[in-house]
Write a protein that binds this DNA or RNA. Structure first.
Lengths: 165, 165
DNA sequence: GGTGAAAATTTCGAAGG
DNA sequence: CCTTCGAAATTTTCACC
């Protein structure tokens, strides 16, 4: 069992080609391996192997389709700031589980500073937001909840800026 | 030229199968068309045609790979609230262009209420955040900028909850 | 709209430098 | 770690219901 302790390093060193592959795939994951290879200066087999490795190592988490929010009737984005009344471990777990299970919640972070949690929520309309809000405040006791509504989405990307080194 | 005015409706009506396809593809876009067809109760040709149509209509915007932020050394997420000093059209355009061009900015919304803009920013470390912050405040005049730092990412998804109808 | 099968591409892996 | 080559799988098109 001693070998079980040997772990893949949390941050595998990525070379310049891996970083290029990540940049390309974050923009367009529908390209063929050969096409990606061309763009990063590799033939298809080594390019394919690198992609497999990036997936196996969890650098690439998944491949997904991005959908236009407005075209499916989800017109409202809301940033919600939450201050908690209770800072116990049990409270946090209950809150985290309840909020994570809500499909309207796209992002959910525990914060430093004056605000304890930040959420980005997407809903169809104000009525749907009201339903969400009531669900949120009835899940666990909260001290303060502030909802800020987006008027215009100016930029929204999923592609992280891959650092040069 | 009269036909040029005929437009595809902004919100094409999506039936239950289209919605299922979107739900599946938002979770895993690496599935084969045949596999997606199985899950939504279609053989591969009609399933393929529907996917093509959803792409042509812009319901599906693109297919991308999602990358683990921490595995590429981007450890810090920051929510930035901005109040503007100037509400002219020219100021807005300059601000929108400058901020949109910054690769650290993942999301950027114009808001209703006390905060004028909300940004979600991703950087490697505090030094990188400082670089970003200076870039931001030097781009255009701002009245107030508040940075809130995330301690823990509890949930982050790209899959929108496709409404039942 | 849907079916089923053929044609065109792409993925994946073996053999080797 | 890369290259070439080929089998297997998948995507895409086509004729027909």
């Amino acid at each position: 069992m001693s070998d079980a302790a040997i772990q893949i390093p949390e941050n595998r060193r990525l070379d310049a080609i891996d970083r290029k592959i990540l940049t390309v795939l974050q923009e367009d994951a529908s390209l063929s391996v050969a096409e990606i290879g061309d763009r990063v200066g590799l033939s298809s087999t080594p390019c394919w192997k690198r992609i497999q490795r990036l997936e196996a190592d969890g650098v690439i988490l998944r491949r997904v389709a991005l959908v236009d929010q407005n075209k499916i009737g989800l017109g409202i984005s809301v940033f919600v700031s939450v201050e908690s009344a209770d800072h116990s471990e049990a409270w946090l777990r209950k809150f985290a589980d309840a909020v994570s299970a809500m499909p309207e919640v796209m992002e959910f972070y525990r914060m430093a500073g004056d605000v304890d949690y930040m959420l980005r929520v997407v809903v169809a309309d104000m009525q749907a937001y009201d339903v969400f809000y009531k669900k949120l405040i009835s899940a666990v006791p909260l001290k303060n909840v502030t909802s800020r509504f987006a008027m215009e989405k100016i930029k929204s990307v999923t592609a992280l800026p891959v650092p040069a080194a």
